[in-house]
């Protein structure tokens, strides 16, 4: 959930709490002496909604970063032909390291590039 959704939920909760407070004051005004316990319960629920809205709002401020997986790729090429191969990085790899003879021709293969590719989980 992004921070905008958290903000929207907290605004809705504040509106809900405000409606409950209005209802409570309406009942207090027009039903004097009646529904006193119900009136207090409504106010209490309104208060809880208000506190919950703060909590949700501050939770939204803590931005949740998308999880990324990192793949380091080693690109192998040949000095003679256009052979190209990609494989995961291995300990000891470095750019322009010679790797022996090419799989396609008799030329020398070497590491052409090493780079990072980030993929969203």
């Amino acid at each position: 959930m992004n921070s905008n959704k958290f903000t929207l939920i907290s605004i809705l909760l504040v509106i809900g709490a405000f409606i409950l407070f209005l209802l409570s004051s309406f009942m207090d005004q027009y039903f004097i002496g009646q529904y006193t316990i119900a009136n207090k319960i409504i106010m209490f629920i309104g208060l809880i909604l208000l506190i919950a809205s703060w909590g949700i709002y501050f939770m939204g401020l803590k931005q949740v970063k998308p999880q990324m997986t990192e793949n380091v790729i080693t690109v192998i090429a040949c000095k003679n032909c256009n052979y190209r191969e990609e494989r995961p990085f291995m300990e000891g790899d470095y750019v322009f390291k010679e790797l022996g003879s090419c799989k396609k021709c008799s030329g020398t293969s070497y590491i052409h590039a090493i780079y990072l590719v980030s993929v969203k989980k």
Binding site: I73, A113, I114, Y115, L116, V117, S118
Partner: peptide, 12 residues
């Protein structure tokens, strides 16, 4: 400071 990204390797 961290592992070279693909975009940077291509920029070379």
């Amino acid at each position: 400071l961290t592992t070279m990204k693909k975009e940077i390797a291509e920029a070379a």
